[in-house]
């Protein structure tokens, strides 16, 4: 049901283009931000092609606006499809959110109300997109800061219902689960246990900004210990899933990011060996 795993990845950022070409870091794959390459030409596409010659890539977008009530933007989808062919993208992901109305784009990942109406609306649109792109999409959980009075179910029940009805794959962002768990006062383990395991194709890991009473998903810090701990739980529960680190602001040099990359591999490896022991499968 799932696509083959790619191992461990990093987000491709322009700050690292040259260092990647100069040093060919031991990264299994890169995730690109699709919109950065939906341009006519120049530097972005030059480096994309050069790096793509050496690494498998997946595409991660922010403009699908799958929860919008405006019609789907087929011009955008065609550009996504062309880009995916150009780089042989192993998969394409975007967020379970909405981002604008009546032609205005708020450029934010706004949460949806968790209602049967929204499940139906979003699942129908995902199916249209999947038909157009001729592949299954990965849908990602977002960080959120409000609860709507309309909502009738938990976020993970909503995510699961959408995934089942649309028959899509999931990108579980472990940091977003953590952020939303603090903001909405739920147990992040309930979330991990509540999603369809067979659909989880990828994880995101990222840093955030903690304001005490609430957390904002800013991608401008290293991954914090509590998110590493939750990632370990995710690995124990969901098994080995392709994972990567997102860093969008306050971007360190590649060598520093590679240390975090190694940490991700270690956390995953030790969680896997622990879960084997828990299941009594290890021989001492």
């Amino acid at each position: 049901m799932k696509l083959p795993s790619l191992g461990f990845g990093l987000g491709l950022r322009k700050e690292h283009y040259q260092a990647i070409l100069d040093t060919s870091p031991a990264v299994d794959w890169f995730e690109i931000l699709s919109e950065n390459y939906l341009v006519p030409g120049g530097k972005p596409l030059y480096f994309l092609d050069a790096i793509n010659e050496r690494y498998p890539m997946v595409m991660h977008g922010v403009s699908l606006s799958i929860g919008n009530t405006d019609p789907l933007d087929f011009d955008y989808l065609q550009q996504l499809k062309d880009l995916s062919e150009r780089i042989n993208a192993r998969w394409i992901s975007d967020h379970l959110c909405w981002s604008g109305l009546a032609g205005v784009n708020a450029h934010d990942l706004l949460p949806l109300p968790y209602t049967p109406e929204a499940v139906k609306h979003v699942a129908t649109r995902i199916k249209h997109v999947q038909d157009f792109l001729e592949r299954r999409l990965l849908i990602e959980n977002v960080s959120s800061y409000v609860t709507y009075t309309q909502s009738e179910m938990t976020e993970w029940a909503f995510l699961s219902a959408v995934a089942e009805e649309a028959d899509c794959l999931l990108l579980l962002d472990v940091n977003n689960i953590y952020v939303s768990a603090v903001n909405h006062e739920f147990d992040p383990l309930d979330y991990l246990k509540g999603v369809p395991k067979a659909r989880v194709q990828q994880h995101h890991l990222a840093g955030h900004s903690d304001y005490g009473d609430y957390i904002i998903d800013t991608h401008d810090h290293a991954v914090v210990d509590s998110v590493w701990a939750l990632y370990a739980e995710a690995v124990k529960h969901l098994g080995p899933v392709s994972a990567m680190i997102e860093r969008d602001d306050n971007i360190p040099n590649l060598a520093v990011l590679m240390q975090e990359y190694e940490q991700m591999k270690q956390v995953s490896a030790s969680a896997l060996s622990e879960s084997v022991q828990d299941q009594g499968g290890a021989h001492v």
């Binding site: 706004l110 800061y145 409000v146 609860t147 009075t149 309309q150 903001n183 009473d213 609430y214 904002i216």
Partner: peptide
């Protein structure tokens, strides 16, 4: 249409957006 929590009011939450 939005709820606050004990610690964070609806106003504060909406201001984030």
């Amino acid at each position: 249409k939005v709820l606050g929590t004990e610690k964070v009011s609806a106003e504060t939450r909406l201001a984030i957006y």
